[in-house]
């Protein structure tokens, strides 16, 4: 997989059929999509067993049927999420994709592009380049993704991984961190899916690569 990604970097600009999303990105993206949805929906069912706030999630949007079923899903899909996430981070760093696509992020750039986006002037002509809002959101969601896994590990293993749990301010606080990371991911998902539908060629690129 990594050789595939390496091969296409020098040729990508030269060829007419420009690869926007290399195969490894598309693969880990869709595996992550499945894993995230399973984790979120089973997580909502787990949340319902002992809600942190004054609301519960409707059973129609949860997975697992009851706490025990939801835990089975959550602790199965976590492997998918974690292994896939590690592959993504490793390849993103090794291929230089993170550096090339996501950096630099400047406050001026983000402000200018946010203004452009809100006034409908942000161009999506070149999908190979992310604008500053995209850079910020994609880099941000990677950080949130790491935090949601770490806070999850902290509440799963508060004895074996007690230093990690302590880093999150203890067991009870780590639960809130885990919840708010989930909320951030769901908020990202709403925007992400809406924009993918608004710019269908970006969705196509994530499916067939071009």
């Amino acid at each position: 997989m990594s050789s595939l990604a390496v091969n296409e970097q020098p040729t990508a600009a030269a060829t007419s059929t420009k690869v926007i999303q290399p195969a490894w990105v598309r693969t880990v993206h869709w595996i992550n999509a499945v894993a995230m949805v399973l984790m979120i929906m089973s997580g909502w069912q787990i949340y319902n067993a002992s809600p942190l706030f004054d609301f519960t999630f409707s059973k129609s949007i949860t997975l697992g049927g009851w706490l025990g079923g939801a835990l089975l899903w959550h602790f199965a899909a976590m492997w998918l999420l974690m292994v896939n996430g590690l592959v993504y981070l490793a390849l993103g760093l090794a291929t230089g994709r993170f550096r090339k696509k996501l950096l630099p992020i400047t406050p001026e750039g983000v402000i200018a592009d946010t203004r452009a986006a809100l006034t409908g002037k942000l161009s999506h002509a070149d999908l190979t380049k992310y604008n500053y809002v995209q850079k910020l959101l994609y880099a941000g969601i990677i950080v949130v993704g790491i935090l949601v896994v770490l806070s999850g590990l902290a509440i799963w293993k508060p004895v074996q991984l007690q230093y990690l749990t302590a880093l999150f301010g203890g067991y009870d606080f780590a639960r809130y961190v885990h919840f708010f990371c989930m909320a951030a991911i769901v908020a990202f998902l709403v925007v992400h899916v809406a924009l993918a539908l608004l710019v269908p060629k970006s969705l196509r690129a994530m499916i067939i690569g071009r």
Binding site: L38, M41, K59, S60, L63, G64, G65, W66, G68, G69, L72, W73
Partner: peptide, 12 residues
């Protein structure tokens, strides 16, 4: 099947 998972979960 529904003991651990409702229909919805099976479809998912």
């Amino acid at each position: 099947a529904t003991r651990v998972m409702p229909d919805l979960a099976r479809r998912r």
